[in-house]
Design a protein around this nucleic acid. Sequence first.
DNA 1: CAAAAATTTGCAGGTTCATGCCGGAATCTA
DNA 2: TAGATTCCGGCATGAACCTGCAAATTTTTG
Lengths: 248, 248
Amino acid sequence: MLKEERQAYILHQVNLHNKVLSSHLSEQIQVSEDTIRRDLMELAREGKILKVHGGALSNSYHQGIASRDVYAVAEKRTIAMKAVQLIQDGMFVLTTGGTTIMELARILPPELRATFITVSLPAAFEYSNHPNIEVIVIGDRLAKDSKITVGGEAITKIMNIRADLCFLGVNAIDAEAGLTDNDWEVVQVKKAMIATSRKIVALSISEKVDTTDRLKVCDIDAIDILITELQPKAKKLIPYSKKGVKIL
Amino acid sequence: MLKEERQAYILHQVNLHNKVLSSHLSEQIQVSEDTIRRDLMELAREGKILKVHGGALSNSYHQGIASRDVYAVAEKRTIAMKAVQLIQDGMFVLTTGGTTIMELARILPPELRATFITVSLPAAFEYSNHPNIEVIVIGDRLAKDSKITVGGEAITKIMNIRADLCFLGVNAIDAEAGLTDNDWEVVQVKKAMIATSRKIVALSISEKVDTTDRLKVCDIDAIDILITELQPKAKKLIPYSKKGVKIL
DNA sequence: CAAAAATTTGCAGGTTCATGCCGGAATCTA
DNA sequence: TAGATTCCGGCATGAACCTGCAAATTTTTG
């Protein structure tokens, strides 16, 4: 990995999370902490970031520009960290949109070499910041609120893909009612993704577990793996485990 | 393999992958690393790429986040204001990407009711902020630097559209050489758009008028309307007018 | 068409750059 | 204040770079 490339990645991380730790970065990028420190120093000298003991801060941070308020970021990040371990080099990965997926997109290790296919424009953007990830956008009509593409063309295109892994952002999940959602178009897309992927992974904060919505996406046994921010053995998740879903 | 050919290949690789390694290229093209280095140096001197230790990066990589100030905003806004008058209710409008197109996207009147079709993710985002505009995204592989989708699928999809209007962001335009560009993939997309649209509108700041680039998109008479920030009668535009292009 | 001129390419060498590791100093945290 | 973490300077090493030059190739010219 080139020095400039690495620094661009670091800068992106800083601007995204407002704070980075040298130790954390060193592990992510797989270089020594010394190198990270030198990078941070260089970026700081250019005024791009603010160097502090142990890491660096975005310099807009203490200027007080409103940090993004995503609900339950910590939980979502936990989920993302578990999810990222499932991805291996060379895989074809299908993803929906949603804030949990975005968290996943942000923490993808820079050396990961995989192909991500998505209907979500924000996710596509985020993926494209990673040097070794090839991004395929599924095109069709753009749903304005969710910024994902929906429609027959999109469905057809998804169906023509054989993905290794499919990450579903969850709207509502219940052991009996299965996966449910509230937008008809989104449901169609998710159904197509489930139909065409080898392994289905549902990402859900625990708050959404045991809830249902109006439109059914699939039965619970269509899900291979369920990831929440809870411990795999958590009481709340036992019913899902019993239905044969693997819990992470 | 000729020098020109080799450099075109290198440039293509850079635009595609965002980065190239000298060592890797040397092995791919079967020439010494010195030759590659000299090529990279030359391309860098022309401003096409960003040379770094060990290889090169697409130059959009750096100017991306930190210094986001768009060049010549005022001019581009003037162009956008002229362009927006061409759009009428119910039209199907095809657009490329680029900062001029983005200006156009921002100033679209809220009551305008039209369908915009684009390969550019940033443009799609911007369009989707307008209440009455339907947005169609053309999907395919995402080119990382320009954030537009490129490839055979995209071309095919574009060809199946019959658009009323096509707005082309211009890279270089010349009365003799026609419209030219420096990225092979982008050229393919633009060609497809031109082939399938009833009326072709080129948007170009005057600075780009009378310049040429490596790859040809189309002859000047394929352009129906040329919009710059200058007065229609400006001296610089007379050659184009004579070729039958309408100037706005 | 062949010789001359110009350009391009590869190689040898010495130089610079990027990175990791070490040990002691500085800084943080409890 | 003690223990841990982080920082800093220095050093070693291999990779990438530059310079100059001669061989090879392309272009020009007679």
